[in-house]
Every structure is written in C-alpha cells, then in structure tokens.
C-alpha cells in the first residue's frame, strides 16, 4: 500500500505539524485539523500475545473502525474531538495552566512514515508514523515519549487536514503526566 508520492506529501504535513507544536503555535495546529477530527490515545498495558482475531480487531481500531459501541468503552488517555482539543488549547491560553508555565521545551521527531490511499474513502490517505518527543521542564526534568501513530489525512481545497489520529505510546508506565500533544 506504500505510495511514494503520498508518503512525501504526508511527511511534509507531519513535519509542518511538528514545527507548529514545537513552536507552541497551537491555534495554527488546530487549523490543521478537520472539524470532525477524532484524536485518541489508549492506555498501554503489557499483555500476553493476542489471538489472531484480537489482533485484527486492534488493527481495525487503529484505523478508526469504532464509534459509540459499548464494547469500545475504554479509559482513554486522549479521547478528543475538535471541541475538546480547542478546550485544551484555550486552557493553556489562560496563562494559569501551571503544567505549561513555563512552556515545556519539546522536540517532536517524526520518522518511519508510510502512506497510502485509504481503501474505503477516496478523500482520505492513511499514514503510519513513529515519533519521539523530547520534553524538558525547568532545569533538568527531561523525558522522552516514544510511540506510533495511525493517521487519516483528508484532501481538502486548503491542502491535507488531519481527520483521524490513533496514538500508541510505548510506555506501560508513563514517564510523566501529559500536557502536550503528539
């Protein structure tokens, strides 16, 4: 499913997005999201190897094949739509959000990008990527978040926009609480 041209376009999009996040230009970042965006991050657990059907279901979840089904109720780390992401940005804007005062120094490094046409929707492309986000707070509180993303980017008149993001962190125990975006 790898498409070189789409991979180049997706890489450019993800790099632009990472620059906005690292520069704390969060309204600009919101501008890269579709109004109907879904942005989710499950909690990670160390579990025995999954049976084939469970593995298949997890893969389907990663590409967004779930909605309000009761089976999918989960204690998410992120379970966002545009309204809730906007709320998070507005909170940081109050000037009273201690967790980001001073703003964390972040470096989003994005790699291993694989993109291809979405098989179900001609407007969407599917993009897998890896990331490392290095976070520094104060003098010497440094942590690195590592993980994978399953994104769907929508072709619009204004260019590519994020319609779906599923984030899996590679941290059974998170190194710190989270006040940044991935």
């Amino acid at each position: 499913m790898v498409d070189m041209e789409l991979t180049a376009a997706a890489t450019a999009f993800l790099n632009e997005e990472a620059a906005l996040l690292d520069d704390h230009l969060l309204d600009g970042w919101l501008g890269l999201l579709c109004n109907d965006v879904r942005y989710v991050m499950p909690s990670t657990a160390i579990m025995p190897a999954e049976a084939a059907d469970a593995r298949e279901r997890r893969n389907a979840l990663r590409w967004g094949s779930f909605g309000d089904d009761d089976r999918d109720m989960h204690f998410w780390l992120y379970d966002e739509d545009y309204s809730s992401l906007n709320m998070r940005v507005r909170r940081l804007d109050t000037g009273m959000a201690h967790a980001e005062l001073p703003e964390s120094m972040t470096n989003h490094v994005v790699s291993n990008v694989i993109a291809g046409q979405d098989p179900l929707d001609s407007e969407l492309i599917r993009v897998r990527s890896k990331f490392m986000v290095h976070v520094v707070r104060h003098e010497n509180n440094e942590n690195t978040f590592v993980g994978s993303r399953w994104d769907k980017l929508r072709r619009t008149d204004d260019g590519l926009r994020l319609a779906w993001r599923y984030i899996e962190l590679a941290h059974p125990v998170l190194p710190r609480t989270i006040s940044i975006f991935f």
Partner: peptide, 20 residues
Amino acid sequence: VWALTHQQSAAGVFAPDDHE
C-alpha cells in the same frame, strides 16, 4: 468516562498541574 479522562487522569487538565 469522558469527564474523568479529561479531568483527573494522566493527560487530563488537572493532574499535570499537580505534577508541576
């Protein structure tokens, strides 16, 4: 679940301020 996720949880709007 939405309210707990978005408030007092690891990436909620409360816990990171306590963390600080």
